Amino acid sequence: MNINEKDKILKEAIVETIAFFDMFNFPLTETEILKYIKIKSDYLEVRKELMNLIRDKVVCSSEGLYFLVGADLNIEARKENYNHSDRKFKLALKVSKYFLIIPWIKLICVANNIGTDNLKNSGDIDLFIVSKPKKIWLTRLFVVLIAKIMNVRPQKNNKTDKICLSFFISEDSLDLSELRQGGEADKYFEYWLLGLNPIYSKDNTFEMLFKANRKIIDNFPNYYEQKISSKRKMNKQISGFYELNWELFFGKLESLVKNIQIKIMPAELKSIASQGVGVILGDNVIKLHLNDKREEFRKKYNEKISKIKN
């Protein structure tokens, strides 16, 4: 590949990355652009192409952030969402510490955070939870019960700062590549994975999750795992005796608990589950995204890129 070809590919990768995050009102720093582009590069090369894009009036820059022409308001949106995110992380930690009563939880992440600290004020707080093998439905049962007791479950007309419990996987199914919609064309899922923020990780489960998904993460050759503040993490050791008692009382009820939960689920959820996209009711994956917007995001993104190129 000659220099001109590489410059062209790098420029396209930068535009595609900025355009994707523009859908979520999130302008990017140079560091973030380098981190999220799908081509091996360095700061100097990225900065050079950013200057060219500014010259060509494709991209603008202000306060160290880069965004598409006409998207200036996204700067204030990013600042506002940073403050909202801080509040929501504190709430997630407050609620999740009670979830750790359940000994089968191996990982809790704040999810759907496309862009660093980009949680909107009116939204709920999505958690992604990993359980021990053959304990996924038991884990969901007790997590939902605790959330209901604490009155933090989202309601139809009240989702702000509520806890959304719609994605569970088992520790023996950490490879999420099969959950992509359309393979590598599923940009949203890739950035969703990179945006997971662990607030509790037992036995290095978060590191194991990333290792299991190297085929996705390797698409981002400049990516590095962001260091999470200790203020946004929980550490709790559960004794073997405590876990044994839970196992004795509830350990054999996984199949029964699964059948009961599926039976009382809304018919619409069970109907969509047969399509295997937004809703999955399996032994290793529980995904309850009734309104899976990935196809909508894909169309919006393609339209945005087409408009830029024309």
Rank of each mutant, 00 (worst) to 15 (best):
N25C: 12
N25S: 09
N25L: 11
F26T: 10
F26Y: 14
P27D: 11
P27A: 07
P27S: 14
E30D: 12
L34A: 00
K35M: 11
I37W: 09
K40Q: 11
K40I: 13
S41N: 12
D42A: 13
V46F: 11
K48F: 15
M51F: 13
R55A: 10
D56R: 12
K57R: 07
V58R: 08
V58W: 03
V58M: 02
C60R: 02
S61Y: 06
S61P: 03
S62I: 04
S62F: 06
G64H: 03
D72T: 10
L73H: 13
E80G: 15
E80T: 14
N81L: 14
N83G: 12
N83E: 14
H84N: 10
S85D: 14
S85W: 13
D86K: 14
K88C: 12
K88D: 13
L91M: 12
L91R: 04
L91N: 13
V95D: 02
K97D: 14
F99S: 04
L100E: 06
I101D: 10
I102N: 14
P103I: 00
K106Q: 07
C109Y: 00
C109S: 08
C109A: 03
N112H: 08
N112S: 09
N113D: 04
G115R: 03
T116G: 00
N118Y: 07
L119D: 00
L119K: 04
L119W: 02
N121W: 05
G123K: 02
I125N: 11
I125S: 04
D126A: 04
L127Q: 00
V130H: 03
V130T: 13
V130D: 00
V130S: 07
S131R: 03
S131Y: 01
K132W: 02
K134M: 09
K135V: 11
K135H: 06
L138A: 06
T139E: 08
R140F: 05
